[in-house]
Design a protein around this nucleic acid. Structure first.
Lengths: 203, 203
DNA sequence: GAGAGAATAGTACGATCGTGCTTTTCTTGT
DNA sequence: ACAAGAAAAGCACGATCGTACTATTCTCTC
């Protein structure tokens, strides 16, 4: 069973991740977070030791949520085109469901820390790289299964597909128009379709 | 001729835009900006009246720079596919040249303000919308000239092309790998090529 | 070149920030 | 149930923030 400390810690990090997805990790003040969770500043602070400790813990917590809400669901789909689609669809679904209050946690925080070297930035980049590799791997598997054109560069395909869903996120957050999600789904679908392997002519 | 006040104001805003492209408009403190420009806090403050005034002025200044560095150069290209390409290429070029110290000013600040309603957010969104409309218009013109498939939805094409270059920016800033720019250029080129209008069969 | 007004600097205040140190309250294993 | 230790709170500090208010210096116009 979870100890009391672990439970409140997790509760704090839930609010922290939600708050940071809205305002960023920098605006995540100890005092503000304490008020939001109904704790005292020092009681909360003791869990993390420093602001950077809180930020790192928040990133890890958000990463766990991302895996649970996006990666895991897509894993139940069979390898190949289907799983590739499932990953991107799960990502858009996670945005539409509003898993984080302010859109994708990593969209907000990666923009915030891209120019702030340090462990927080590194931890964020690590997660983004992991997501990218998931996509590349999914495309490669689709190629190995003969479903996608083997001549295509899997990194470029992953780049393009990821671009569609990331852009849907930023456009949607800024203009509050859910049609961007459909735009992205259409773009992903059509791109995958255009890369479908043409059956090798028998000779 | 420009008055003294206008000149220093412009100089302040140059540094402000550079700084904000790195750390965001929130971290843009009056004191820090004063030190960076060699002025006193109050002397600088008097130019803008409030922090929000400074932020709004910085957004406007950055928008002017963006127009000068991206929109204007592309305008010299002839309408159609060529200008569409020129817009996207100019954008990537502006990133590669490092016009702003921390990457695209609007990438940083739009992520920062997407969940902070107010005049600053509105002003940023306005600029992003303008850029998007430029792209849509360029695609439409290419269609009107018979260069691009008239059946394609220009908003979706613009969405996809914009996604490529925006994603190049965020990936490059995080992973410091210039290959993302070439990835984006290839993606844009191929997408435009795939949409080239097939000559109407004569009947 | 002198006076008017703009531009810049000086100084101070309240609020909020992160963080250390001490004390109180609560959990948990025996 | 009670002691030991974890968890939370209380309190204080120096630093930095945005912003007033006042004083000084510079710039332009006649």
């Amino acid at each position: 069973m979870l100890t009391k400390g672990q439970r409140t810690r997790a509760a704090i990090l839930d609010t922290a991740a939600a708050l940071a997805s809205e305002q960023g990790l920098g605006s995540l003040s100890i005092g503000g977070l304490a008020t939001a969770t109904g704790m005292s500043k020092s009681g909360l602070f003791a869990h993390f030791g420093s602001k950077e400790g809180l930020q790192l813990a928040t990133v890890d917590h958000a990463a766990a949520i991302f895996v649970r809400e996006v990666i895991e669901p897509a894993r139940s789909s069979p390898r190949g085109i289907v799983r590739t689609w499932a990953l991107l669809d799960a990502f858009l679904d996670y945005l539409e469901r509003g898993v984080f209050a302010g859109g994708c946690f990593f969209a907000t925080t990666s923009a915030e820390f891209k120019n702030r070297p340090g462990p927080v930035r590194d931890r964020i980049a690590e997660q983004l790289a992991r997501w990218r590799e998931y996509l590349v791997r999914a495309v490669e598997q689709a190629q190995e299964l003969g479903e996608l054109d083997p001549a295509a560069d899997p990194r470029r395909v992953a780049f393009e597909l990821n671009a569609f869903v990331q852009n849907a996120e930023s456009q949607h957050e800024l203009f509050a128009d859910p049609r961007f999600f459909e735009l992205a789904r259409d773009a992903v679908r059509e791109r995958l379709e255009s890369l479908r392997a043409t059956p090798e002519p028998v000779r």
